[in-house]
Deep mutational scan, measured.
Amino acid sequence: MTYKAILNGKTLKGETTTEAVDAATAEKVFKQYANDNGVDGEWTYDDATKTFTVTE
């Protein structure tokens, strides 16, 4: 399944996708990606669109 992350960081804005077996696995991948890029904020998840959003 393909999951998407939308990054609304102070220094990084954009989107990325990952293939994962479930939302929990995708969330770990996206949170690591955000952390590696200095983005730390509030996370939300929309199951209907399989989209995570982080906003700083």
Rank of each mutant, 00 (worst) to 15 (best):
9 G>R: 02
40 D>A: 11
23 A>N: 06
14 G>I: 15
30 F>L: 06
40 D>R: 13
7 L>R: 00
11 T>W: 13
4 K>Y: 14
19 E>D: 11
51 T>N: 02
56 E>M: 06
13 K>C: 13
43 W>G: 01
20 A>Q: 06
49 T>Q: 07
54 V>P: 01
52 F>W: 07
19 E>P: 04
10 K>N: 11
3 Y>M: 02
54 V>G: 01
31 K>C: 06
16 T>K: 10
28 K>G: 09
39 V>F: 14
7 L>G: 02
8 N>I: 14
17 T>H: 09
54 V>Q: 02
13 K>R: 12
26 A>I: 00
36 D>M: 10
12 L>C: 15
18 T>E: 03
48 A>P: 06
17 T>D: 05
28 K>F: 09
1 M>T: 15
46 D>A: 04
34 A>T: 05
23 A>T: 08
50 K>Q: 10
16 T>C: 15
13 K>F: 10
30 F>Y: 00
19 E>M: 14
17 T>K: 08
49 T>P: 00
10 K>H: 13
44 T>W: 07
55 T>F: 08
29 V>Q: 07
24 A>W: 09
46 D>R: 02
50 K>H: 12
6 I>G: 02
24 A>P: 08
47 D>M: 09
50 K>N: 08
12 L>F: 15
56 E>I: 08
14 G>H: 12
34 A>G: 03
21 V>K: 13
33 Y>I: 08
38 G>Y: 06
50 K>S: 05
36 D>F: 10
16 T>F: 15
38 G>K: 06
21 V>N: 11
3 Y>A: 02
20 A>D: 03
27 E>L: 15
54 V>I: 13
56 E>R: 01
42 E>R: 10
27 E>M: 14
28 K>N: 09
52 F>C: 00
35 N>R: 15
11 T>D: 11
44 T>G: 06
54 V>H: 04
23 A>P: 11
6 I>L: 06
37 N>D: 03
31 K>Q: 08
44 T>H: 11
14 G>R: 12
2 T>S: 07
15 E>H: 10
35 N>Y: 15
13 K>A: 06
31 K>G: 02
11 T>M: 10
27 E>V: 07
44 T>E: 11
7 L>M: 09
26 A>L: 00
9 G>Y: 06
35 N>T: 14
36 D>T: 08
1 M>G: 13
15 E>V: 13
18 T>K: 04
5 A>C: 15
30 F>G: 00
41 G>F: 05
23 A>M: 12
9 G>V: 09
16 T>G: 04
27 E>I: 11
24 A>S: 11
56 E>T: 06
3 Y>R: 00
42 E>A: 10
12 L>G: 07
21 V>Q: 12
17 T>R: 07
51 T>W: 01
51 T>K: 02
55 T>L: 06
23 A>G: 04
25 T>D: 10
9 G>H: 06
40 D>L: 11
51 T>E: 04
47 D>E: 14
1 M>A: 13
35 N>L: 15
32 Q>G: 06
32 Q>W: 05
6 I>N: 05
27 E>R: 06
12 L>H: 14
9 G>K: 03
53 T>Q: 06
52 F>R: 00
17 T>S: 12
53 T>H: 08
11 T>G: 12
53 T>A: 04
51 T>Y: 01
17 T>F: 14
33 Y>D: 01
55 T>R: 05
7 L>E: 03
31 K>S: 04
23 A>R: 12
14 G>L: 15
